[in-house]
Nucleic acid binder design. Structure first.
Lengths: 149, 149
DNA sequence: CTAGGTGCAAAAGGTTTGCGGTTAA
DNA sequence: TTAACCGCAAACCTTTTGCACCTAG
């Protein structure tokens, strides 16, 4: 629950090890921040949060760590237009809903059946390794405190 | 057919006028390049092409013109990850297939029925103004000359 | 001992903006 | 005449990189 302690989940260290990488305090804290704060934060937002725990961390290291986590498939990088890249620890197949007003981003679960119907629109010969689905519009936004801006 | 002459399609000037904007040679040429070269070029690629017709044009003007065309909905801006923005005059609902190897981008037509099934995965309360669907993977790429690389 | 990591500062894209001069309604 | 445009250069923002130092295996 807390992002404060250095919780080295076995699977976490393991996922890194599989890529020949180490589990470091920076990587652990950044990962736990992503897990506890599922608002799809930007690198800058993660930086602000992680600084409270590791005051000496640099923004470059945050970028590097996030990239590392993406490499070993612990998190996904999400982009909306030209906005800053956001990071998301949800590895399940899902779509994203981006609320332009509030800037909030929500995960939308994506049933396997819909996913395969989408893939079925591809003409023969196309081999899709991944599909990315992004909605834009107004979200319910029940909790105004969730709004970004 | 030719992108050389100053073809002021009525609808083109009209679309601009509706936003209180003018039809200029720069905007016309850029638009006709997009129409004739449907490879989803970047601003830089458009710049290279348009310079052969308007040698004195600047990259900033290309960016400005493209943005203007997007504003008055004559073209769509397309983004893949953090790559340069690409521009696309196809206003029909369609998905994009991005070939990571060649860099090529293909329009995939999106049947209305599939579109509505996709929208049906949204929980109640969500109001999607637009949906963006991007495939990544290997495309047939029958014509190697099309590869961007 | 040495490959991998961190922090810092500088560089690298891609895109936008401010400004002086030009042009079309 | 005057608002819209253009070209140029500088600014901007996000992200990456080079380098010196440090640390875990």
């Amino acid at each position: 629950m807390s992002a404060t302690s250095t919780v080295t989940t076995p699977s976490f260290a393991q996922a890194l090890a599989e890529s020949g990488l180490r589990s470091t305090p920076q990587r652990e804290v950044i990962y736990s921040i992503l897990l506890s704060e599922r608002n799809h934060p930007t690198a800058d937002e993660v930086f602000a949060r992680v600084k409270t725990e590791l005051p000496s961390i640099s923004l470059a290291t945050v970028y590097n760590c996030l990239e590392t986590l993406v490499q070993c498939k612990l998190v996904k990088a999400v982009n909306f237009e030209r906005e800053s890249t956001r990071y998301c620890p949800n590895l399940q197949p899902h779509a994203h809903f981006h609320d332009d007003q509030s800037g909030a981003t929500h995960d939308i679960s994506l049933p396997q059946e819909v996913l395969s119907q989408i893939k079925s629109i591809l003409p023969p010969g196309y081999d899709a390794a991944s599909v990315e689905i992004t909605f834009r519009g107004k979200s319910p936004c029940a909790n105004p405190a969730d709004q970004r801006n």
